[in-house]
């Protein structure tokens, strides 16, 4: 029983971080119908920033979000202005975004490899290898639970950022505009939303979230340039599972699959963890192609 709780806790902590990573991806799709295959490449690029900030300047990775997010926001806005505005309104926009971001992902991967080589990196702040130990409470005599500090802080930060995002979308003027554009782009235009500005901001927000995710990744998961493919496959599985563009779906999908993969790892072995995501993806495509919270077939 204690083991089950332990595994579930680890899964939830993992799911929290996945939720943050997937949130950015789903935001870009929701508002602009951009399927960003470079999202994980952006995360890895950000992880390098945090990693070197820690190694060279001693800045805590968790703290590094303070500058990684703004940097990535500006980067995202620039990418949007330079690349996506050109293809806006093109007939096969969805397909174009996939191929374009595919190319961007390859470019980022190559540049990172060129600059930092392909070796594994992982920042090691003090808390990365420490745990909170919980005993007593409801647990049987002698049993204890480990809560890894690094993952705990990461999940905490993810929750804070996701709540902030939610509040921003729910209550701010720009948030209204973003939601309006997500639901009906033409209608947003008609009521006077400058959809191009909103799109640029949303894409910036999406990459800023990738930035925050990268800061967390820098000490949670070993990374190297090529790794982003594995991550983007997992994140996309999450996003399709939740229903493309649905923020709620992405978060719930991340938490559920975080726990599920955590049990798979515990029962079958660590190499099968990612399989949970792919199998879940195919299962959901078979049963409900539009995803858990999607309304129509994603086009």
């Amino acid at each position: 029983m204690t083991n089950v709780i332990q595994v579930a806790i680890l899964g939830l902590l993992l799911g929290g971080v996945y939720a943050l990573m997937a949130a950015g991806l789903t935001l870009a799709f929701g508002v602009m119908r951009i399927v960003n295959l470079a999202h994980a490449a952006f995360i890895i690029a950000s992880a390098y920033i945090s990693f070197f900030a820690f190694e060279k300047l001693g800045i805590d990775p968790l703290l590094s979000v303070v500058f990684v997010m703004p940097i990535m926001f500006l980067f995202g806005v620039a990418v949007y202005q330079v690349l996506f505005r050109r293809i806006e309104g093109s007939k096969r926009f969805g397909e174009m975004t996939v191929l374009l971001t595919f190319g961007i992902a390859i470019m980022v991967e190559g540049l990172l490899g060129f600059a930092f080589t392909g070796i594994y990196r992982k920042a090691a702040p003090g808390y990365a290898n420490e745990s909170f130990i919980v005993d007593g409470l409801f647990l049987p005599q002698g049993d204890i639970l480990f809560i890894p500090k690094g993952q705990f802080y990461a999940s905490l930060l993810s929750i804070v950022l996701l709540v902030a995002l939610w509040a921003f979308l729910r209550y701010s003027q720009t948030g209204y505009a973003i939601r309006a554009t997500t639901q009906n782009r033409a209608a947003a235009e008609i009521v006077g939303v400058n959809v191009r500005r909103v799109s640029a901001i949303s894409f910036g927000l999406s990459t800023a979230l990738a930035g925050a995710s990268g800061a967390l990744m820098s000490y949670l998961f070993p990374f190297f340039p090529f790794r982003h493919w594995q991550w983007v496959a997992v994140l996309l599985a999450l996003v399709v599972l939740g229903g493309m563009g649905s923020m709620k779906g992405a978060v719930i999908g991340a938490l559920v699959l975080g726990v599920a993969s955590s049990f798979v790892v515990d029962q079958i072995g660590p190499t099968w963890g990612p399989m949970t995501f792919y199998l879940a993806l195919f299962l959901i495509l078979l049963i409900r192609p539009q995803g858990l919270f999607g309304k129509e077939a994603p086009a």
Partner: peptide
């Protein structure tokens, strides 16, 4: 009509006064 289907009637009206 170009409404925002997942926003409430009130929110839709408020969006009308976006500017």
């Amino acid at each position: 009509q170009a409404l925002f289907p997942e926003m409430s009637v009130r929110e839709n009206l408020i969006m009308g006064a976006y500017l």
